[in-house]
Amino acid sequence: MTTKAHKVYAIENGTVIDHIPSPNALKVVKILGVHQEGILTVGMNFKSKKQGRKDIVKVENLKLTAAVTDRLALVAPTATINIIEGGKVTEKRPIKVPLEFKGLLRCPNPNCITNVEEIPTHFKREGELTKPTVRCRYCERIYKDPGDLVI
């Protein structure tokens, strides 16, 4: 199944983000901010032995650095990043899921100091790695869908 999917959508150069938990592919595109960066292939709901259903995003002609793809920690902690050059995988890496997120998320609490003063937000990850929640360091509220808070 996956081999066939790769054949159909194979790219010569760029980045393939595999094993994205369904249905988060569009959130991945949004967070990476690559929707205007050339040809983009989004595949959703592939069968996966490991995770039931998975999504795949392929970004042509762009080598995304770890600093960029690590921003996916909250929507696709299980994803793998494949850098493709000349039709071959030249680098394969997981996503680093840190314990703290500085400046990555916005706090939805309007009465939180991060929405009043010009300061970077700061969240701590709690809960399981595959289903993380985050707590705002300032107002101390806990949020269940942190992927929706990515700035």
């Binding site: 609490n109 009465n111 939180c112 100091i113 991060t114 009043v116 003063e117 300061i119 705002c136 360091r137 300032y138 107002c139 101390e140 509220r141």
Partner: peptide
């Protein structure tokens, strides 16, 4: 302070 997180900051 009326704003949450003000003391932490």
């Amino acid at each position: 302070h009326p704003v949450e997180g003000a003391a932490r900051l």
